[in-house]
Design a protein around this nucleic acid. Sequence first.
DNA 1: CGAGGTGTTGAACTTGGTCAAAAGTCGTGG
DNA 2: CCACGACTTTTGACCAAGTTCAACACCTCG
Lengths: 244, 244
Amino acid sequence: MSRSCLIEKIGYHIPIGDADARLLARMEEETQNVRAKTVIRELGDPVERLYVVKSGWFYSYMYLPNGSRQILHVHYPGDIVGIPDIAFLRTSAALAAATDGVLCPFPKSALDEVFVRSPRLSALLFSIGMVEHAVLVDRIRIISRMRARERVIHFLLEVVSRLRVTRREMGGRFDMPLSQEMIGDAIGLTNVYVSRSLKQMQAEGMIVRHGRGIDLVGEEAMKKAVDFEDRHFKIDTTWFPRTD
Amino acid sequence: MSRSCLIEKIGYHIPIGDADARLLARMEEETQNVRAKTVIRELGDPVERLYVVKSGWFYSYMYLPNGSRQILHVHYPGDIVGIPDIAFLRTSAALAAATDGVLCPFPKSALDEVFVRSPRLSALLFSIGMVEHAVLVDRIRIISRMRARERVIHFLLEVVSRLRVTRREMGGRFDMPLSQEMIGDAIGLTNVYVSRSLKQMQAEGMIVRHGRGIDLVGEEAMKKAVDFEDRHFKIDTTWFPRTD
DNA sequence: CGAGGTGTTGAACTTGGTCAAAAGTCGTGG
DNA sequence: CCACGACTTTTGACCAAGTTCAACACCTCG
């Protein structure tokens, strides 16, 4: 845990030179301990800082006029939170902690430096943004056109694929700290139907549950059922500018 | 129409120097006339080229295992198509023409040059990507948590706000070349319910229709009904690297 | 003029929402 | 270590929004 998650995550995609490592280290200078359920940033706050997730799960969300909540992203260790906001003056989503965890806030200006100094890191940040884009596209596809059970299946697959970015060798088993209501708010269902879907999946032998833990026993079948594509596994770095 | 849409669109956000103009001009060297309904690019094609829309409406879409179609983006004149694909080796969506139009294909490598030569344009491309991101977020919010009528309202508002990027002075009236089925495929409804929603909106005096044309008579009321935010109007360019 | 795409309308049906209550779980404090 | 309260999950009954299917009207463009 002493090693930087950010460098680990980025190093997963491209080799990082010393100069780049120094730029990235600047993003993890400060740390901030956060307890579960704390709201870190409200919707509409001025965009002054971004965050690197050092540990714990976080999520961005927004409320709708009718009072329902939409969860847009779950953020895992190593994620950079707030990239999409850079283009705007005010945040378009609130940020809260799903579990206890540690954040590293850093000023937006640290990114300016990345853009000026390292075309290579810029390209990678850009690409990471595009991965997020692909994730949203998947989400739309799921919410718009799939049934409740399929949505839940997809959500679970997305979670493990995300966790595997930093924990490469994990199996299908993991701890799910999000409540069913939160899952529902992410995929456009009520907690009631999430519960029913999970129950059904368990009956079908796709998953096994013990308390908080979920084991994706039938991962292959699940992937087939929703035409799942892992967006996090591999991005194309061949077009990146050379370091020189 | 002789003036480049791309430069016009980008110039809307930042002043463009000569060097940048030359980089951008490279993206509009070739042109390709396309008839309505032509499929330009299939899902899964290798990502070799991107496109600038010179005229006409285009859309990206994908099919789901169950046969339904999801339209992800509508592309208007001045848009760059394919930015989210840069991070991947294969396209994640197909591209087709909604109307007759003209595309300017350009090789992915033209972007590499942008990244190396112009931090300022890189930052803008990055920001444009983030605007797309915000648009997707809105879409999710709408599809996931709003009723049919609200979804249609939001879709129409999105269209005019998009058109206004290049046609600043247009009112609420425009030509809708997309069929109701396509609208439905974009916002997760069937053509039947799109029709009913439009009918209802007309009865309520929100819109007036004459054939293909739609006039958003009650635009303010519509915006209020769905908590609409214009994502295209203004992006934050203050953090952009200086030209020097 | 004819054909195929597009829009409209109706009726039956289905999925997931809503409401409500019961059963677990977990953390806290006594 | 237990008891309490708050939250989460499960389950049931009923309801409603939107789908499906089908028929028909309408364009519009060969």
